[in-house]
Amino acid sequence: SAGQALANPWVLRGRQGAWSEAPFGGEEFLARLEAFHRQPRVKRVALTAVARQLPDERIDGLQKAFRALDADGDGAVSMVEVYEALQARGHELPQSFDAVLRSVDSDGSGRLDYVELLAATADARLAAQRDVCLAAFHSFDRDGDGLVSKEEFANALLSDDFERVLRQDAVDKLFTEADADGDGFISCADFCRILAAGGDECTADDES
């Protein structure tokens, strides 16, 4: 049940103590970007859904950093701008860092918008907040019956945010991964399980 899912020890840990923001360009910020890149794609999708639900007051520091980067105020920054900003802070970034930024670019636009950057760098405990977790789940559960059908899942993913990079076969694969018991629906428990899952190295197959 949803109540049992939200009593998951990982979720409960998320409600204990204060969360921390990773100052832009710091070691923790880079570590979170790299950790996001290592997550299975289904978890990156779930974290992006969570990022859309985070209240502004919980992420004030990252908002300010993003606005400073987003010189024209259009809500997105180029990967070159992110590279230059990080290098200006003294980081020597390997060529492989391109793949990290591409994994953050969930809509394949070639630019990073605020939600994408937030999904990759917000404190994991924010995603575990009861209200945020439920709101993210309900963003998929369009009819409010407590279960996400394959059609609802596809409708959510094949939206403007993901349509450039996800094909129907990729959506079907993600749904199968998320539907832990194979009953044809994603429950709130399934959704919380995705968020609690560890970050295995992604493979080329994850990116299909």
Rank of each mutant, 00 (worst) to 15 (best):
G61Y: 13
A88F: 00
K150A: 12
A196Y: 12
D160A: 15
A136N: 04
Q63F: 08
A189L: 15
S139P: 06
E21T: 09
V115R: 05
L117S: 01
D113F: 06
D98P: 00
T48G: 00
V132P: 01
C202P: 15
H138E: 14
G199E: 11
G146F: 08
R111K: 14
Q16F: 14
D72R: 15
A178H: 07
R32M: 11
L117A: 00
D113Y: 09
L30S: 02
V80Y: 00
A71N: 01
D113C: 15
S187E: 03
A71L: 09
R52W: 05
S96W: 04
E92H: 14
P40H: 13
L117F: 02
G14E: 07
S78Q: 11
G75F: 05
C202L: 14
G90S: 07
V42G: 00
F29L: 04
T48C: 07
F66Q: 01
A135F: 02
V11M: 15
E28V: 10
V82F: 03
D172R: 15
S20I: 11
R111E: 07
S208C: 06
L166E: 01
R167A: 09
G75M: 05
D113H: 13
Q16R: 15
C202G: 10
P40Y: 09
A180P: 00
I186V: 15
V115A: 06
Q129C: 13
R142E: 05
V165L: 09
A197I: 04
G110L: 13
G110M: 10
L195R: 03
F66K: 03
R13S: 10
L47D: 00
F29G: 02
W19T: 11
V77M: 11
G25R: 04
K173F: 12
E81L: 12
P23D: 06
A76P: 01
D161A: 08
A120L: 08
Y83V: 01
R15V: 11
A5W: 02
R52M: 10
G17R: 11
W10R: 08
G73V: 10
D161F: 02
R38H: 12
G182Y: 10
S96T: 12
D200R: 15
A127K: 09
K43H: 10
G146D: 04
K43M: 09
V115S: 07
A124F: 05
P40L: 09
A76K: 14
L174T: 06
D205H: 05
E163I: 15
